[in-house]
Amino acid sequence: MVPASSAPDAPQAQNRALAGELIVNGQRYHLVPAEPSASPATAPAPDVRLLTSRELQVVSCVCAGWGNKQIATKLNISTWTVAAHLRRIFVKLGVDTRAAMVSRCLGALSLPPPP
């Protein structure tokens, strides 16, 4: 076991996390604060009909099992834009994961096939 004081990059990793940046397996991720969720008793029922047509395209691609890079390539947008769409979709549907999003959307309406 390596002591915390001698662990390489421990202070740097903590500073990066505080600055909104996370590096995992060489991939750099920018952390974006999520909107605080309302309590379930006061939150309105999520409605898939609130999603835009582009968000529905992203949902259908996720339902097909595609990752962000594949979705970005198919929709001719950046991976950052895909992530932004997913964040907005999560907020609108009141979910925290892709699996919960798919579960919520599959029974709600017939999604268009992925482009």
Score class of each variant (00 low, 15 high):
residue 2 V to C: 15
residue 2 V to D: 10
residue 4 A to F: 12
residue 5 S to R: 13
residue 5 S to H: 10
residue 5 S to I: 14
residue 6 S to K: 14
residue 6 S to P: 04
residue 7 A to I: 15
residue 7 A to N: 14
residue 7 A to G: 09
residue 7 A to S: 15
residue 8 P to M: 05
residue 8 P to Y: 04
residue 8 P to F: 01
residue 10 A to E: 13
residue 11 P to F: 05
residue 12 Q to M: 08
residue 12 Q to S: 09
residue 12 Q to G: 07
residue 13 A to G: 12
residue 13 A to W: 03
residue 13 A to E: 08
residue 14 Q to M: 12
residue 14 Q to C: 11
residue 16 R to D: 07
residue 16 R to T: 06
residue 18 L to I: 13
residue 19 A to D: 15
residue 19 A to C: 13
residue 21 E to M: 05
residue 22 L to K: 13
residue 22 L to G: 12
residue 23 I to Q: 10
residue 23 I to E: 14
residue 25 N to Q: 15
residue 25 N to R: 12
residue 26 G to V: 07
residue 27 Q to I: 07
residue 27 Q to R: 12
residue 28 R to Y: 09
residue 28 R to V: 10
residue 28 R to K: 14
residue 30 H to M: 15
residue 30 H to N: 15
residue 30 H to Y: 10
residue 31 L to Y: 07
residue 31 L to R: 11
residue 32 V to E: 14
residue 32 V to A: 08
residue 32 V to P: 06
residue 32 V to D: 11
residue 33 P to C: 09
residue 33 P to A: 15
residue 34 A to C: 12
residue 36 P to A: 14
residue 37 S to P: 15
residue 37 S to T: 15
residue 37 S to K: 14
residue 38 A to I: 09
residue 38 A to Q: 11
residue 38 A to L: 11
residue 39 S to R: 05
residue 39 S to Y: 03
residue 39 S to F: 01
residue 40 P to N: 07
residue 41 A to F: 11
residue 41 A to P: 04
residue 42 T to D: 10
residue 42 T to V: 14
residue 42 T to A: 07
residue 43 A to L: 13
residue 44 P to A: 15
residue 44 P to N: 12
residue 44 P to I: 12
residue 46 P to R: 13
residue 46 P to Q: 13
residue 47 D to N: 11
residue 48 V to L: 12
residue 48 V to E: 08
residue 49 R to E: 14
residue 49 R to M: 12
residue 50 L to T: 14
residue 52 T to H: 14
residue 54 R to E: 00
residue 55 E to G: 03
residue 58 V to G: 02
residue 60 S to V: 04
residue 60 S to A: 11
residue 61 C to D: 02
residue 62 V to S: 06
residue 62 V to K: 03
residue 64 A to M: 03
residue 64 A to F: 02
residue 68 N to R: 01
residue 68 N to V: 02
residue 69 K to S: 08
residue 72 A to K: 01
residue 73 T to C: 10
residue 73 T to F: 06
residue 73 T to G: 07
residue 74 K to H: 11
residue 74 K to L: 08
residue 74 K to R: 14
residue 75 L to P: 01
residue 76 N to T: 13
residue 77 I to G: 01
residue 77 I to R: 00
residue 77 I to S: 01
residue 78 S to Q: 00
residue 80 W to Y: 04
residue 80 W to G: 00
residue 82 V to N: 02
residue 82 V to L: 01
residue 82 V to I: 08
residue 83 A to C: 09
residue 85 H to Q: 08
residue 86 L to E: 10
residue 88 R to Q: 11
residue 88 R to Y: 06
residue 90 F to C: 07
residue 94 G to C: 10
residue 94 G to W: 02
residue 95 V to Y: 05
residue 95 V to F: 06
residue 95 V to N: 07
residue 96 D to H: 10
residue 96 D to T: 08
residue 97 T to Q: 06
residue 97 T to D: 04
residue 97 T to A: 03
residue 98 R to W: 06
residue 99 A to G: 09
residue 99 A to H: 08
residue 99 A to Q: 13
residue 100 A to I: 07
residue 100 A to M: 08
residue 103 S to W: 01
residue 104 R to N: 06
residue 105 C to E: 01
residue 105 C to V: 00
residue 105 C to N: 01
residue 106 L to F: 06
residue 107 G to W: 00
residue 110 S to A: 09
residue 110 S to W: 10
residue 110 S to N: 15
residue 110 S to G: 13
residue 111 L to P: 02
residue 111 L to Y: 02
residue 112 P to N: 05
residue 112 P to F: 03
residue 114 P to C: 06
residue 114 P to K: 03
residue 114 P to R: 03
residue 115 P to D: 01
